[in-house]
Design a protein around this nucleic acid. Sequence first.
DNA 1: GTACAAAATGCAAACTCCTGCAACTTTGAT
DNA 2: ATCAAAGTTGCAGGAGTTTGCATTTTGTAC
Lengths: 249, 249
Amino acid sequence: MLKAQRHSYIMEKLRAEQKVVTTDLAIDLDLSEDTVRRDLNELDRKKLLKKVYGGALLIKERPSHTYNVYISAEEKKEKIVKKALSLLHDDQVIIMSGGTTNLVFAKFIPEHLRLTIYTYSLPIAMQLSQYPNIELILIGGKMQKSAMVTIGIDVIQVLSKIQADICFIGASSINVKQGLTEVGYEVSVVKKAMIASSDKVVSMFTSNKLNTKMPHGVCELQELDTIVTELDPDDDRLEKYRKTGIKIL
Amino acid sequence: MLKAQRHSYIMEKLRAEQKVVTTDLAIDLDLSEDTVRRDLNELDRKKLLKKVYGGALLIKERPSHTYNVYISAEEKKEKIVKKALSLLHDDQVIIMSGGTTNLVFAKFIPEHLRLTIYTYSLPIAMQLSQYPNIELILIGGKMQKSAMVTIGIDVIQVLSKIQADICFIGASSINVKQGLTEVGYEVSVVKKAMIASSDKVVSMFTSNKLNTKMPHGVCELQELDTIVTELDPDDDRLEKYRKTGIKIL
DNA sequence: GTACAAAATGCAAACTCCTGCAACTTTGAT
DNA sequence: ATCAAAGTTGCAGGAGTTTGCATTTTGTAC
């Protein structure tokens, strides 16, 4: 049995029983007590448990500050973003809108890529902060608290001064006639500015957004270079979109 | 056998058995252990499995969408911020710097207060997004990833245009002679701008920051209106500071 | 304190891993 | 067809890791 497996076994037993005893573990795992002790010390050093005389105890969750973002239909979104990764390469300047699809995208960006990314979404900025090779610029402004994005004139102003290679834009709704449309007026304005500042426009969304409509227009379908959904590019549901000549991943 | 085939074989076996052992794979595939190791390292780099000593494990945890901020000495900081809450009242315009003390402060702001808050710290903005009565403006700029704050000229520019009633400023170091000092030059500049834009300046910090010094000056002690620590205001350790006439909570 | 279990330390044997290298294969260009 | 460049593989040797045992130290209970 691999050491890493033993560690999982120990942690699992610990979570189930709140404590583990060195001698019991030695029997369970058919190992010398010395090795078990070494394992426990190692886990203790990683602060995954608390070593005590005779065994180890479960560590109480740190009262640290955590932020959760709920992502619906995550598997579909993973499928989408994996396709979109092919659009990335070193030294691009990128603008990313908010939305959970873009958040999942941020998580899947390969660590080695050297990118400059502008975003006005807090969760995406949090995520991208973990990448050492990404130059990250957060666009400030008045917070729209529900969506965790900044909006308003400040955002537009910053966006108008950027010249990006590519922008990744979430979609509330899309259809062949009206193109991209948004629920909120202010978000629609910001997205227009994104598009104006980017050489290439990519929109990623799940197929349930297809053929729906919202009050505020963002752009015609023709203004998008590429759309990415979880569907196969040859799927019947995309036929109308294929006819417009737009690239589909 | 082609490398790609081996990789599928490894992944298949891994999915079936949760783990693979280097030596077994070498026999299975009739290859040297070195090559198997190279394969495993390659798959590890692609994040398809987790290489461990002796073999490799299945990756199961999907990337999480929770963001943690570890707060040290949280009880002390709670004590500090509870004292500082008395400085708040409806309709104030506030600037908050980054730092975990300010983050704890954000957590303890009473929900009913009607405030306008400017901040350039992501975790604080995340926290404050949960308050319906707070008008929140996030100041954008280049991200300093380690501290989760924005810095640079953009931040200074926005700050210079604000006229705030009060600012809450974290402290890396403070002493009677040099006043507030900072590790990073850029953060020190931002804090200067905060102070210039605020009628009243409050600094909150734990007592271990007292009588320490960092390379970059922020302001003289006299420019602060109030300091807040977890100590009793009459504590001996604050005597030198009391003599300067600064208000101590 | 004493007795005894548990833990830490030092050590050797076995095992695993990495690096550089040479032999070999594949790819693509001429 | 020929050749160079790039990629792949196995091997040798050295470095690093893991494990159980013997020995010493520490902790707990009485």
